[in-house]
Structure formats: structure tokens, C-alpha cells
């Protein structure tokens, strides 16, 4: 049985739920340290011990940064065969914003200056866009933790892709306008592939391994098939046709698909 430490934010949910529902099917003995939002921002690693230092919302009175249900307080890193990281602002959500006003000549909607101007976007070089995305992802809490863990243990680090949103974000009036713009311009697939490539490069740069979102869970390049998100019932949710939908967090089905990928990755490491 592989001993794994899962660190993240609310995006650990799919994995914990998947393991709950698939007892024995996945050969992982998993401990988890997670907090909602950026609740892990005060983490420390001292003498090989990862400590979440998650503040108790009952004490601080601040919602949204408390411990995720089932989270441990600390973990001795040498006790684990692999460290899994997910969420923590390492996602396509950080990248999509970059594409709001910027275009490349390799994108159909900005294939030349005249087209870019017509579509209200500024042309930039691919090099600048990649540097910008890399800067954003590198500055994420996930990458900070990954770098520090890398310095503290030789165990493999797998970065599990936070799922793309569902098409629910296209519902008028949500704050995910950037996804709507990219979809309208037909650039979803381009954005998605750019993100995947850079995420892999960045993780490789710190000797971590990026586990991308399984292709079968992806809808139209930039979105997650709704069936991999319905049922998370994690507030706040939106109602679509009377049914509550969480358009940002994978469900147990998503977690199970990803864990199969993790198992395969672990065999190759």
C-alpha cells in the first residue's frame, strides 16, 4: 500500500470522497492536510514536518480559511511514499484572465494585427504570454509549497490538475466573464493546451510531476463535463434547471478518475 500525503484546499474533496466510496479499490493509504481557500498560507516545514498552521475560524471569526473536514494538523514527510498536491491557485482559473485582453498570432481571433484590433485584444508575443502565465502559476501557494516540500524530501511530488470549470460558468451574470470571452472567440482549446503545457513545464522545473485532467472528463477543451462535478453540493452553488451545481469542484467520480491516473503515474516513477 502506497502511503500518500495529500495537501491542498477544497479541491482535495474529490479524492477524499472517491476513497470513501471506493474503499480498497485504490491502493493508497492517504493522509490529508487541507484548508479552505488560502487557509494553508501560514504553513511551515521544520525538521521534515509539514504543519498546516490552519487557523480555526471559530477563533478568528474569518470564514473560508478553516480546516477542510478530515484534515490532519501536521505530517512527518519521511513517512510518505508520495506527496500529492492540488488546488491552491494552480489552475486554469489563474491563466484564463491573461487571455482576457491579450492575443497571439497563433490564435485565430488575433491571427494578425488587424483581426486582433477588430476583436479588441492587444497582440503580445508568445514569449511574453508564457512568462506571464509562468509568473502567475509560480507565485501560487501550490508552487510555494511544492518547492519547499521538494527541498525537504526526495519523495515524488505529483501535482493533480484542478478541474476546469463546467459550462455553468457561461451562465450570464457570473463573474467568469473571461471564460465566456474565450468560448465566444473559439479559443477554449488553445487556452487549455497552453495551460497544460506550461503547468507541466513548471512542475518539471521543480522536479515535480504534473498529472493533467483526464481527457475523458474534458468538454470542449476548456470545460469539465458536468457529470464530473454534479453532486459535490459544496456551497456556494448555483442552481441550473432546479438542480444545485458546483461548477468549480470535482465530485467523487472525478476524484476516482484522477486517482487511477495517479496509480499509473506511480508505477512509472
Amino acid at each position: 500500500m502506497t502511503r500518500a500525503l495529500l495537501i491542498g484546499n477544497s479541491h482535495v474533496g474529490p479524492y477524499l470522497n472517491a476513497l470513501k466510496h471506493a474503499e480498497g479499490e485504490v491502493a493508497l493509504d492517504l493522509d490529508c492536510i487541507a484548508a479552505f481557500g488560502d487557509g494553508l498560507e501560514r504553513y511551515t516545514i521544520e525538521d521534515g514536518v509539514f504543519c498546516g498552521n490552519i487557523l480555526d475560524p471559530k477563533v478568528t471569526g474569518r470564514k473560508g480559511k478553516g480546516p477542510f473536514p478530515g484534515s490532519e494538523v501536521r505530517a512527518v514527510l519521511k513517512d510518505y511514499d508520495v506527496v500529492l498536491l492540488t488546488g491552491l491557485r494552480f489552475s486554469i482559473f489563474q491563466v484564463i484572465r491573461v487571455f482576457r485582453d491579450l492575443g497571439l498570432v497563433t490564435m485565430d481571433s488575433s491571427r494578425d494585427y488587424a483581426t486582433a484590433a477588430e476583436n479588441g485584444v492587444t497582440l503580445v508575443s508568445e514569449a511574453l504570454l508564457h512568462r506571464l502565465i509562468a509568473e502567475r502559476l509560480s507565485g501560487s501557494l501550490m508552487m510555494q509549497i511544492a518547492r519547499d516540500i521538494r527541498a525537504a524530501t526526495d519523495a515524488p511530488i505529483l501535482v493533480l490538475a484542478q478541474p476546469r470549470p463546467t459550462r455553468q460558468v457561461l451562465v450570464e451574470g457570473t463573474r467568469f466573464e473571461t471564460f465566456c470571452n474565450a468560448e465566444e472567440r473559439g479559443e477554449g482549446d488553445f487556452v487549455s493546451k497552453t495551460y497544460e503545457r506550461l503547468a507541466q513545464e513548471l512542475c518539471a522545473g521543480i522536479a515535480a510531476h504534473y498529472v493533467p485532467q483526464p481527457p475523458g472528463t474534458i468538454d470542449g477543451g476548456m470545460f469539465t463535463d458536468t457529470s464530473y462535478m454534479m453532486g459535490t453540493l459544496r456551497p456556494p452553488f448555483w442552481k441550473k434547471n432546479g438542480r444545485p451545481v458546483d461548477f468549480r469542484h470535482g465530485n467523487a467520480r472525478y476524484g476516482a478518475r484522477m486517482l487511477k491516473h495517479v496509480a499509473r503515474e506511480l508505477e512509472t516513477l
Binding site: V105, Y113, A114, A117, S125, A127, L128, R131
Partner: peptide, 21 residues
């Protein structure tokens, strides 16, 4: 202005057209 250079000749030329505009 492009320390890493551009990915293609087309990119150089289109960025220059934007610059001139």
C-alpha cells in the same frame, strides 16, 4: 523589447504593425 525573441517571423511583423498603428 522582446528579450526572448519572437516565435515566428509573422509574430515580429504583426507586433510591428501594431507598434506603428
Amino acid at each position: 523589447v522582446e528579450p526572448d525573441g519572437c516565435a515566428s517571423v509573422k509574430e515580429v511583423l504583426e507586433l510591428r504593425k501594431q507598434h506603428l498603428a
